[in-house]
Write a protein that binds this DNA or RNA. Structure first.
Lengths: 339, 339
DNA sequence: CTGAAAGCGCTTACAG
DNA sequence: CTGAAAGCGCTTACAG
């Protein structure tokens, strides 16, 4: 009926039959664990097995293996949205590292919605993933404690949460770098496009900035910090609010490159030019930043590496180890928008 | 040893034991197929089964199901890169549609490299996906004929290939729309930033444009078409080449929004302003286009819908049907960059 | 060094 | 309407 299925894949039994030996012997030879593989069969048998396996293109059925070993070598990754370049690049790191250790990853979008987040996690658990990488953690959510209670292995990526293992940029430090840069450039009236208050990235970058700013002797009125969406439109709206507020800043720090681009647009609508009439600094140093008509200063965070580290941390959690949060160090790229 | 595994999940056997009936009966009741489920058990038995399943949070083991049914309900998706917003959004459509019909999807990046493409496809096949969605098809590749020969179910997405089922934007029509628009605006000297010649998107958009341009009475020298990478830097380089070539265009059509942004940067470096000194039109109408400092005219393609359609086509291929390519219609969004 | 058996959690003809 | 059995493709203690 289903004439589209390729002919039946070759199995251990096929190999065993052709070699005239028992399937269990074939299994032991092909067993990935070298400790078991060694001494599992005579050198000559082992060689014959491996040769035939290669010749027939044998590839073990992962469903069968999982059923037996109770390990799927599957990872679940949940992100706010893959169309956010930052998460897409982190996921590239995840995929690369996971493939390197024989894992495959599912990714799914939660749109930063608590209900969706929970639904997607349950979907991955129903697929029997060995562990989860959560890229959309909310500071006020109750999902993480629940997963912990259910003893489900997970690590956070991108956004941290006190008490749970995570791989993130040192966002506080990133904010500090921007404060130091703008202060050194002589700016004294600044404002922050702060992002979503439920995201540690937004909170940490903003607090790193403002605390360092005060330590340097600067001051910032309350209206100079505007929470916003992370995207271009959110940045534009926040910038408009700031420009209308009387704060009259000479520099804007947006905690996200896309928000920074929106801010540049808002400036232009007022007849101002980013970098000339008002400095703008973004965050993440996405590939776009350097290539914009007015190149954007931005804090570079090691996005792909964050993804790779998340996978490494998760493997340790899967081994039952206790894992501390990892903070990766950012650097500041100064360009025309704030030079 | 592994103290991080949550307690054993509840199985059919557990349900059967608690209800004092045979596991096969439980299976028949819970069987998704309503035809089988009806008449599989007395109404009262069926109700008891369903109630206990809900109470204990039973969820069938997909690995076991797959092993038995030889269907994984897994889809493999390969894209050039998820950090390309266009593909990320198409994937959101894929994920949504797949989830709706009980499928899960793997995505993987091929970086538009033939070797990587092949490796990733084999990886997905080793995972026993039911079918593939290929988003990085090369016009000159030999992977597709090979997959066809091996009777592996697949459909194309984003880029088409003659003779294979695909879900794409009507890219030829998209190019035509831009030609008509620029011609109507009075432009007579135009150039095209054409993208990668191995991608049908690039070829179709470019040929749609130039053929319509000629039909309208326009002419274009050979140097006015410059093949390029799809990203911002590629667009910048191509624009610089065009501006240095003596073509002296009053309008640029870039087959990709990011390339268009690069082109805007190149104009600015020469002291020119997009939309004033030279019109710029992009393709895909990504979320950035409308929000740029100078809003970018762009051909809107239904990206998420392309992903959804790809899944629907694949399900038909899996049923053994013959499937024709689907072309989704684009529309042009005119903004300041070409108004 | 190799074989034989049991079993992971399901589904599905086959009986009755 | 329900039960009992077989088997999907593996792995792994247990013998010998």
């Amino acid at each position: 009926m289903d004439n589209h299925t390729s002919e039946r894949a070759v199995t251990l039994k096929d190999l065993a039959r052709q070699l005239g030996i028992h399937p269990s012997t074939v299994s032991r030879v092909l067993h990935s664990d070298p400790v078991v593989a060694r001494g599992a069969a005579s050198e000559s048998t082992a060689r014959r097995v491996r040769e035939l396996a290669a010749e027939l293109g044998y590839s073990p059925d992962p469903q069968a293996t999982s059923l037996r070993t109770r390990r799927t070598h599957l990872l679940g990754v949940v992100v706010p949205r893959l169309s956010d370049l930052v998460l897409a690049i982190m996921y590239e790191g995840v995929e690369q590292e996971a493939a390197g250790i024989g894992y495959s990853a599912f990714v799914t979008n939660s749109r930063d919605d608590a209900g969706e987040q929970r639904r997607k996690v349950e979907l991955m658990l129903a697929r029997r993933v060995d562990g989860l990488i959560i890229g959309d953690s909310h500071l006020d959510g109750d999902l993480l404690p629940e997963l912990h209670r259910r003893a489900i292995p997970f690590v956070l990526m991108n956004r941290r949460h006190p008490g749970f293992p995570s791989a993130t940029c040192d966002d506080v430090r990133g904010g500090e770098l921007v404060a130091e840069h703008l202060w050194a450039q002589g700016h004294r009236k600044v404002a922050v496009i702060a992002g979503e208050p439920y995201a540690s990235t937004a909170v940490d970058r903003t607090s790193g900035f403002s605390e360092r700013w005060r330590a340097l002797g600067g001051s910032m009125p309350e209206e100079a910090i505007v929470w916003s969406r992370f995207d271009t439109q959110g940045g534009r709206e926040a910038a408009e609010k700031i420009l209308a507020s009387g704060v009259d800043p000479t520099a804007l720090f947006a905690v996200n490159d896309f928000a920074a681009i929106g801010a540049m647009g808002a400036l232009r609508s007022r007849g101002m030019t980013a970098g000339q009439d008002c400095a703008v600094v973004g965050f993440n140093d996405t590939s776009l930043a350097a290539e914009l008509p007015i190149p954007l200063s931005s804090v570079r965070s090691p996005m792909a590496e964050i993804g790779r580290v998340a996978v490494r941390l998760l493997t340790r959690v899967l081994r039952g180890e206790t894992v501390e949060p990892v903070l990766l160090q950012p650097t500041l790229q100064v360009r025309e928008s704030s030079a």
